[in-house]
Amino acid sequence: MYGKGRIIPALILFLGLMTSPIWYKSGEASKMPKPEKPKDYKECVAPTQEMRTSHMVLLNEWRDDILREGGARTGKTPNGTEYIRSLQNGCMKCHSDKKKFCDACHNYTSVKPYCWDCHLQPKEAM
C-alpha cells in the first residue's frame, strides 16, 4: 500500500464521520418522549394515530377555514362531542401543559412550529 500516511487517517476520519450518530452521546440512554395526556378527557377530535401524524395539518386547515373562508368555529367529534376549532381555546383546553405535551415530541424530533409566533403561550409554559 502506498501513501498510507495520508490515506489511512483520512479513511478513519471518513468512517468516524459516517458512524458519528453511533458515537454521539452513546453513553446516554435514549429517551422516548412521553407526552402527558389529559386525565379528564378520553376523546380527541380524531383518532390518536391520525393526531400523532397529522395534527399540524388539521391546525392549518382550521386556520385557513376560519380566518380566510369564514368557516365554523366549532366542530364535532365522531362521538358527537362539540369542540372549539382553535389552538388556544380548543386544543389547549385539554392539553393545557405545552411543555409536557407539545414540546415533548417536538423537541425529540427537532420540530419548531411557529404557532407561538402569534399565539400567546399558555401561562404555565412561560
Binding site: 422516548m32 418522549p33 394515530q49 400523532r52 401524524t53 397529522s54 395539518v57 415530541c105 425529540y108 424530533t109
Partner: peptide
C-alpha cells in the same frame, strides 16, 4: 404522513 416519533424510535 409518517409518524415521526415512531420513526425516530
Amino acid at each position: 404522513r409518517a409518524d415521526v416519533v415512531a420513526i425516530k424510535q
